[in-house]
Design a protein around this nucleic acid. Structure first.
Lengths: 211, 211
DNA sequence: GCGAACACTAAACGGCAATCACCCACGGGC
DNA sequence: GCCCGTGGGTGATTGCCGTTTAGTGTTCGC
């Protein structure tokens, strides 16, 4: 029991100079490139160059490329979860909380376009499902916060149509559609973003719930 | 054995076909693979193998890979344009026509998932804008048909909120959001598709227009 | 001091889109 | 009957990509 442990020294051994910093450096460099140039531009070699190490070195700290980018996305989504948690606890009308959440969701997408697209717009097979598990869990927790408030509305009989789940999924996907197309088709002749957000929120909340 | 033959077994090489026949063969093979395996799976080599020619031969008939796949998408979108044109001319209430169009749009996306994702969900920089010109034009004509009907509704004072353009864009993007997430996150715990479509259409039409 | 773990590297692998330098059967003008 | 331009075709190559392998020097616990 007390002997022949595989990794006892690993934790006992204090990380020396560079080792424990490297991971953070990689994440920072990857985030810069990813934000500036998106998924296609954030190649292993570019990131490694930015850090000043060989591309192989990245595999010391991450299993593969997607793990790096998804960890960046996780950071962003944690922010969203925090926002949702805060809104969910506010002592205001449930519909107002739903509106705040959806508004924050759209703002989140527009402020983190590359992270949002990677997580929510990525073609079905681009990222393998199991690698996304962590990110998915975070997203699900955001969704759960959201459903909780919609459930309140349903419990007080204010859902105009559908059940709680279908109403929540409709609200979510509608807002997703707006920001997704704003991001992926920037050359389209869009009305002002704030106008579209307002029309979307007014319309869909009015359409699905009663005051 | 016969002599003086360099490559007697070269029957693998296709008999010479006229240029335009070969072009059609390539499109058909590409469509099969594209439908079955999506953008990532439809590589130049796979398509060329399927046709039975070298990968280089594809560049005789198409400028690059995207031109092949976009031409497939164009065919699909032409169908949608045809459907929209038919609906647009039907002698029924304008709101009913809008509903039919949106319903057809979502059906189109769900029956042509890969084409839909390539055209409407593709990350901002995946396909260069100019290569998509033809496809974009087709999409715009579909949208124009749609806006035309929304304009009728606006002209008769039945828009509850926003102007014609923002209402049309809101309706379109909301429906896009639903099908886009249904396609890209197939493992999510969705309500039945038909239920979601109904709640979305009921909700958003009720929210944006009066009867 | 020594062996093991660590942080890292150069080189290579296989796959991708795209390009290059050819090759050759065909058909019209001579 | 011969010549030759041309269009459809090819294998080799380029230059990316993510990832793997084998190896190098430094450092640390013992």
């Amino acid at each position: 029991m007390t002997t022949t442990l595989k990794k006892p020294q690993r934790s006992a051994r204090k990380p020396k100079g560079d080792g424990h910093l490297r991971r953070g450096e990689i994440l920072q460099a990857a985030e810069r490139i990813f934000i500036a140039e998106g998924y296609q531009g954030a190649t292993i070699r570019r990131i490694a160059d930015e850090v000043g190490v060989s591309s192989t070195a990245l595999y010391m700290h991450f299993r593969d490329k997607d793990e790096i980018l998804l960890e960046i996305c996780d950071g962003a989504i944690e922010e969203l979860l925090h926002i949702n948690t805060e809104i969910s606890g506010q002592p205001i009308d449930a519909v107002a909380r739903v509106r705040l959440m959806l508004d924050a969701y759209m703002d989140f997408a527009l402020t983190n376009p590359n992270a949002y697209q990677l997580v929510f717009c990525g073609p079905a097979g681009l990222l393998s499902t199991d690698k996304q598990q962590m990110t998915r869990d975070l997203g699900d927790r955001c969704y759960d916060k959201f459903v909780g408030v919609v459930r309140e509305i349903g419990a007080s009989g204010r859902l105009r149509t559908g059940n709680v789940e279908s109403a929540a999924q409709t609200l979510w996907t509608a807002c997703h559609g707006l920001v997704a197309l704003l991001l992926t088709r920037p050359t389209f002749n869009w009305e002002p973003r704030e106008d579209l957000k307002a029309v979307m929120l007014d319309g869909i909340l009015y359409g699905l719930m009663t005051d």
